[in-house]
Design a protein around this nucleic acid. Sequence first.
DNA 1: GTCTATACCGTGATAGAC
DNA 2: GTCTATCACGGTATAGAC
Lengths: 194, 194
Amino acid sequence: MDSRKLLVDTMSELMWERGYSDTSPRDVRERSGVGQGSMYHHFPTKRDLALAALERNVDDLVPAGSELDGPGDPMARIEAYLMRPRDVLKGCKVGRMTQDPQVREDPALLAPVSRAFAQAHANLVGVLREAIAARELRDDLNPEQLAHTLMAVLQGGYVLAIAQQDPGPFDDARAGAIDLLRAASPSVLNQERN
Amino acid sequence: MDSRKLLVDTMSELMWERGYSDTSPRDVRERSGVGQGSMYHHFPTKRDLALAALERNVDDLVPAGSELDGPGDPMARIEAYLMRPRDVLKGCKVGRMTQDPQVREDPALLAPVSRAFAQAHANLVGVLREAIAARELRDDLNPEQLAHTLMAVLQGGYVLAIAQQDPGPFDDARAGAIDLLRAASPSVLNQERN
DNA sequence: GTCTATACCGTGATAGAC
DNA sequence: GTCTATCACGGTATAGAC
């Protein structure tokens, strides 16, 4: 129906599955069924199509962090965010882009990726601060650093899982992170001091 | 001098910088100065050269874990391993391969990557066990999971840093991980119980 | 907006002489 | 082992009709 939307949808999928460099205009045409003429009418270059697809893929990631804004204890929300089911062996549609040389070298393509991670970081920092305020986490922990740690656990978990072609390492990584977070609750001793 | 070695060296560099798909035989020839004939004499296909280069790149990573076998407290060795200086914005020459579709789909190319991470995991598990035995870490933590967590922090740290074109998120991620590890030492209360 | 035809270039080789 | 020449193919468009 709407060729333009079809093209963006298809490019989004392909960029998730194969990245940018390794996805050709021909791949997009064949999967979408949109003809050559239409394609270049809507998007003068492959890069233009990729930009549209990328904006879409990063937008998918923002509501994906909705566990963080929900109700419940801050720590419970953080754990829910980490434990949300994910398509582990496909990897992260946003993080993947950082390993594509043609994306890395193109500030315009990298920009949406950068924004998405910055947004995720800000959300996580907020909940971590709440957790500290609620005495669920020690107050000597740095929320900015810790947010990057947790994001890295997820992004790196994908890498390890794909290397083994097994989601196990991803699940291990996040379970270990949660154990550490729980171990970092203010100790009974400290609570008695206050 | 030795064309074969020159080719492997050059391919190793290029695969670190640009991955496999995006590195062409021409790139290798031009950077190495080795001629077309020599190249295809030593390596019948690009994939053969990549296999040799990959074996070499993963071998670079094993001695890189030598901090783990050194002297000193187990926890100090883990921290030294995490804090070792790294070329953050270039990323990990092994982890990078997992995002290349042509590597992902080729079991022979993925195998060295898988082995390298499995080895790193085994080494980390060993030191984490020592840390628990030395009462530097709580004994209710799972060393297998935790090892994957720490590896993921590094691998994911690269992703975040490249996205921002700034090593900051990588440094945050590992600093946060170390803070969590320290917070997971057996509490005074627990120590008194034993 | 969509179609078909055409074009140019880089990739990933192969061929055969030296 | 190394050199130069050649090649088939896919990637990434452009041209112009409908």
